[in-house]
Design a protein around this nucleic acid. Structure first.
Lengths: 224, 224, 224, 224
DNA sequence: GATGAATGAGTGTTCATTCAT
DNA sequence: AATGAATGAACACTCATTCAT
């Protein structure tokens, strides 16, 4: 409302302005709080009061913005999933070097920017709650997995086209990479928190070693 | 009645007939019912009364055999996963042919006996519920994953020792296989039920193609 | 049936005889087990299976002899209460010495034979469960308390008649003694088990000191 | 409404009116309801829903104020017994007259304020439930009985110090009084409700007669 | 008569959701 | 719009009692 509203808490900003601003920010703050808690503790283990508390509001306010806890969950996924996962695509398209390096660098970037962030926990969350929220699993499949598979598919096809890779079945090979990505996210958010002693598993090292194996195979060249 | 009645279970003495037989069968029936329902609906979403009902008994009977719902969960894992794994391990130990075929056949057997049965859903279940039941996840890790990794490790080492495989890092390579197994189970029980149109994904074909890729690599021998 | 039965019981005793004997003993054994457990753990905290187990029979058998747990309780009280409490009366009637000594010796005997035995726990039990079993409380009042009060009343009256005691209100004075008896039993079975450090309370010493106080008063003779 | 309202809430700001006032009143209302029901029916025989209903709220509200039924029990004891005892203690400290009268008046006050109120039933309740809730019995012992014994002890010691009483064993003599108090409460809440015909027993008269006997003894001064 | 497997009503407690203020 | 007191449906687990064997 007020044009002079500048600082978050300037005395000049009339209460209406501040409240107005909060009102617009509320859904996002609640979604952020929910995202963190759902990833930390799981959907059903997170009480809606906790979400409200972390967002700094009261229980009642949460239900002012989201008709139910399930709707909140849906909004968390809808607004945060695509955001996080769709960012990467473009920059890999105009890469120039060898495809092998492209693949390694792509995976490393993915791990740093997505896999190893709360967004990685989102995947585990979606997979875990797929029974209760089948539409969300479908949405995840459409808006995250499909684009990801296509992107990887283009990279592999590039390698084949440039004579760097054998003429393998691209969709299957894509899945061999996807499986490692999904696995790493799942592992990190399921097994690692429960068995701290097994922290020896280094996700990034595994991803790179996995790619290396996929590229060069277990069987030595001579015998193949 | 009979003078020759000696053993407690002579055909003539069937006083313990129905009742007794049920008592022995009950735990298995309850575990089977629990397995199905847990995989169908998730652990916490399954009410203990439902498990009892599917096994054809009343709520109270369930707690006659298992002290708590969580113990039932543990028993499901123990009897339907851990034991199967132990059995499979033995068979593969005395295999004679080439390691490549051993690997393929091992994966195929696993898929048929575990991955593609309700037990496969258990893995997804454990991973999903790991936040709520960390001890169960730890138990799964100890009694299912560790043995599985060791078994695969022995197979890969065999290939290396016989000169069939390159001298790769065995633990990492094992995880490359494990990741595909976990992925396939996760996928089948999370994404597939929600996106029937995408049934194009053939798990067994993927597994074999994955192994093929791991064995022979993407990069053609000449160029490596 | 078979004459050559070589059971632990003498060969001459036919199985029917043995079973017959057990059949008659059963109710008593069950009541004894119930008495002990009810006193130890309270009525509702004692599971009927425990009673059966302590009596060496199965759960079902208990209900063969007693239609319900409450009926069992009633039988325990009915058969054990009067037994234990009515024994004393006669021997005190023909006592010759001073009434003061009679009172002391009577209380001491009561404590050793009744107050300090499981029967003492019965009183606490009856008082505790009086809400749920009002008839039992009434029965206790009629068959235990009334006779006890009359007995004590006769003793006090004897003292008055023989000029040993002042002409106090006998019924009130009787209650002053009864209160200590009831208190001691209640205390022993309620407070003592919960506060072992306070074991400094010696019931018999208290009883005798109590009688002494009642006899000679707090106020020194000179000033009264 | 009134301009002279000097309450913490400004007359202009009554938004917290009804709701807030209830929030403060609720614990007391629930404790009162619990006290009545526990005394009427016993602790375990009282369903938590009944307590809530008598306080005019729903089951859930009860657990909003008390984490468990057992905690509610503890609070009932604390607020209705322990605190009253502390209050009584103070008043008697600065009494001036003869100790004999102090003792009588103290007992009379106790009977009117505690013994003859629902709180008196609490003692019987604690003793009855001591097996099931030993910690509550211990708490009762610490926060009610101990202070009570010390208070009585100081009174008796005062009598001895002032030469009004004989040099008896104070702790034992204290118990002689305590026993009558405990007995009267036990009797009133166990036997009396079950045998209305025996209503001839007048607790206060008994207490005073008991004190009189303790003070002046059964044995006439001349003969002692 | 004796057994013990089976039952199911009953209860403490949680938590998403509502609504008076 | 925001609050938080109040609600009540839901659910794991117990145990007295039954009854087929």
């Amino acid at each position: 409302m007020s044009v002079v509203a500048v600082s978050p808490d300037t005395p000049e900003s009339p209460p209406t302005a501040r409240r107005e601003r909060r009102k617009e920010a509320r859904p996002g703050e609640l979604i952020q709080a929910a995202l963190e808690l759902f990833v930390e503790k799981g959907f059903s283990a997170t009480r809606s009061e906790e979400v409200a508390a972390r967002a700094g509001v009261s229980k009642g306010t949460l239900f002012l913005y989201f008709p139910s806890k399930e709707d909140l969950f849906r909004e968390v996924i809808r607004t945060r999933l695509a955001d996080h996962f769709l960012a990467m695509g473009q920059e890999l398209e105009d890469y120039q070097g060898p495809t092998e390096a492209l693949l390694r660098s792509g995976l490393q970037t993915w791990w740093e920017r997505i896999g190893n962030t709360p967004a990685g926990g989102l995947t585990k969350l979606v997979l875990s709650e797929s029974h209760n929220f089948p539409e969300i699993a479908a949405y995840y499949q459409t808006s995250v997995v499909q684009p990801g598979r296509e992107l990887l598919g283009r990279i592999l096809q590039r390698g084949i086209d440039r004579g760097e890779f054998r003429r393998v079945e691209v969709p299957q090979a894509v899945m061999s990479i996807v499986s490692a990505m999904v696995f790493v996210m799942t592992w990190r958010h399921s097994i690692v928190p429960c068995t701290p002693q097994d922290a020896s598993f280094d996700p990034l090292a595994f991803l790179l070693s996995h790619v290396d194996l996929l590229l060069h195979g277990l069987v030595p060249p001579a015998s193949s």
